[in-house]
């Protein structure tokens, strides 16, 4: 690949990431302003809503990063020629997808420290790791399917030119698989944001728990929980919009 092309792609990716970060910050500021001018019981509690929403977004961000790393490892492992590696990936996906996320969060927070006292995590990081390991299994399946969706002729052409298995993966298969996997991976991030509400079960003050507290303090569940739902909707919609542009900048065909 020509150096200019790589540079152009990198700078595009940086602009995109920066734009996304700025966009989400502005969106959060706007949402904060909006909430504070709303009537009781929302306006006076805007700070708590915003704090909860921010925590939810940070859980999503960190667990998405962990999930992406785990997903790439699992996706590559499940296509490995080594059957132990393949078996490990299969068992991982089987365990994670066959048990509820809520149980996984509770397990990381309560059971893991009981087994290994040094792995005592606070509520935030317990939720991040549980959700990240969870979404990683789903991402792994998406990435495996994406790699398999690249036509076999591509691998044959690359290998027939003398490229090794690893270089074929790096230069031919993965760049094409990425385009296929981005939309489903983003769907997983949207699901992740919604699943972050389960962290309320271990007492983490994210958006859902914040709403729940305000609701029971004010005895006004309708406006409060509607606001909670609306905030989730705003952020999940924002993620979908980001994907739209992501798909655009990744177009080559």
């Amino acid at each position: 690949m020509s150096r200019n092309l790589v540079a152009a792609k990198l700078s595009k990716a940086c602009v995109f990431l920066l734009g996304t970060a700025v966009g989400f910050t502005l969106l959060s500021l706007g949402v904060g302003e909006l909430l504070s001018i709303l009537p009781e019981p929302i306006g006076s509690r805007a700070d708590l809503f915003i704090e909860g929403a921010r925590t939810s977004l940070y859980i999503t961000l960190y667990s998405a990063i962990i999930g992406l790393i785990v997903g790439v490892v699992m996706g590559l492992s499940s296509g490995s020629s080594n059957r132990f590696v393949r078996g490990f990936a299969w068992i991982y996906v089987w365990l994670i997808r066959g048990t509820p996320v809520l149980v996984q969060i509770l397990f990381v927070y309560y059971a893991v420290p009981a087994l290994f006292p040094s792995l005592q995590l606070n509520e935030f990081w317990a939720a991040v790791f549980a959700l990240g390991l969870n979404v990683g299994a789903y991402n792994g399946e998406v990435i495996r399917a994406g790699i398999e969706a690249v036509p076999k002729g591509q691998t044959e052409a690359a290998r027939s030119l003398g490229l090794s298995k690893a270089k074929t993966m790096r230069w031919v298969v993965l760049p094409q698989a990425i385009r296929i996997v981005v939309p489903p991976l983003v769907n997983n991030i949207v699901a992740l944001l919604k699943d972050s509400s389960l962290a309320s079960a271990i007492g983490l003050l994210e958006l859902t728990l914040a709403g729940n507290r305000i609701s029971s303090e004010t005895f006004l569940p309708v406006p409060v929980l509607s606001t909670v739902a609306l905030l989730y909707l705003i952020y999940t919609s924002a993620i979908t919009v980001v994907t739209h542009y992501l798909k655009k900048i990744m177009r080559w065909a």
């Binding site: 690949m1 036509p151 591509q154 003398g162 490229l163 270089k167 385009r179």
Partner: peptide
């Protein structure tokens, strides 16, 4: 079986630069 994500020129240059 050309590589769809690479330009014509990059299709030709990939193996010589990466392998040789």
């Amino acid at each position: 079986n050309l590589f769809p994500h690479l330009t014509v020129l990059d299709n030709l240059m990939l193996a010589p630069t990466q392998v040789k």
